[in-house]
Design a protein around this nucleic acid. Structure first.
Lengths: 232, 232
DNA sequence: GCCGCGCCTTGACAATTATCAAGCGCCTTC
DNA sequence: GAAGGCGCTTGATAATTGTCAAGGCGCGGC
């Protein structure tokens, strides 16, 4: 892998604490690849051969069972995915596909495990990352089990609004079909859910969202940091 | 904490790889406590002051939002809980209560973090544990998003059967009200779901389950290792 | 034994969510 | 500019799941 790419990867919390020697050992076996949109990168059930790092673009993590499919999460630059499968040397639990043209670093899993075995700082960084991932899934599960689809959508919009800077107007980051799957509903139901939020001052125009009455929407959504705050 | 308790804790994968000195440093600040049933040990939102280890009994991890409550998981001896909150020094995302009379070790979180900072083997053990926890929640989420309540119950029964030794007859491990909450449904709906599995050869008598036609139930449940196998 | 309590079940009904089938609108392509 | 494709929306309908109220059953206490 070309050294020019190193800096942006090195700045990741996961890699910033390790020694130069270990980092370079990791990068030696790694390579960067560009993928077009809608390309399957990994399939659930396969052995975890590579740790992936998204440099640009975006990735959909999804799962299938019995002919059904659901989006589990979206990975945005710059971050890694399938870390847990790599460190446990276990099969992937989710599949991954590019949503758009994406630039991905592939680091052989055995190299990650080898460095992990000898570099305490790397192990500690992985703990930080895994702990965050774990807590993110717990939050998602609380969202799913404790809220109706209308409440999930309302809180999703409030989270997106905050991510987009907090203004009353912002744009959805991906297509509604996928949003529906992430929120655990059908596209039809999402359409109706948007209508169901109109009384609370939510206006939708394509991917553009306007929150006319912040107070009103929040009164309905009842956002909770232990579910919605991704920083803690 | 009395040294007599050390061995059973020491055998946990989490603690078995660390040096004696570090282990004893951890145990110095720890103490064991007995709790009666139905006692709240921690509440979501509180700072994570202690890492907990269940020596005997059982613990319900649950969450609340907007007046609703759901069971997230059950912790059985001997294992730890709220490890992620401890290592990230973040507030608990779930509450915990004893289901029965339970014996719990409380290890000050700051001690855990201090040893974690200096003991690479401990850090690696935590990675193993967190990775497993993460993957368990991902499986639970796939179960929730991809299956109907009837399918979740059918697969739950097959998992329990395997845990109980694989015989056609076995007993549920906790009361149906809680099972319903774990499976993400109401008690009434669980009752009907049991009836709905009768055509597939499932007989229920109180907490006792008989699987009359293994093939038939499996054909309906379609268990999948990437959701149902807790070992991988 | 009998009572009372808690849990589970059942039935009737309501709300939520999914499915199926059009139809609309926008964008691309030719 | 017309045609076609694709994603989104809408309506009608069905399936799933939840709610409320009542009743049964078992178990411990008196």
């Amino acid at each position: 892998m070309p050294e020019a790419q190193y800096p942006e990867i090195r700045t990741l919390a996961l890699f910033s604490g390790m020694t130069d020697a270990h980092f370079e050992a990791l990068m030696r076996g790694a390579y960067v690849q560009n993928f077009p949109p809608q390309i399957d990168l990994i399939s659930e059930g396969e052995p975890s051969d590579f740790l992936h790092v998204v440099l640009s673009g975006s990735i959909d993590l999804y799962s299938e069972w019995n002919g059904r499919e659901t989006s589990m999460a979206t990975v945005l630059p710059i971050s890694t995915f399938i870390l847990a499968a790599t460190v446990r040397n276990a099969p992937y639990l989710m599949s991954a596909r590019t949503l758009e043209k994406s630039r991905i670093v592939l680091i052989p899993s055995q190299d990650v495990r080898a460095i992990f075995d000898v570099d305490g700082n790397f192990a500690r960084a992985i703990v930080g990352e895994l702990g965050q991932c774990y807590r993110a899934v717990i939050k998602a599960q609380k969202d799913l089990k404790l809220r109706s689809s209308l409440e999930r959508l309302a809180n999703y919009l409030l989270r997106q609004q905050k991510r987009a800077g907090g203004a009353a107007d912002f744009d959805l980051m991906f297509e509604k079909r996928r949003l529906a799957s992430v929120l655990g509903m059908t596209p039809e139901n999402l359409s109706r859910a948007f209508k169901g939020l109109q009384p609370y001052g939510v206006a939708v125009n394509g991917t553009h969202i306007s929150i006319r009455d912040q107070q009103d929407l929040e009164r309905f959504a009842r956002p909770n940091p232990l579910i919605d705050d991704h920083a803690i």
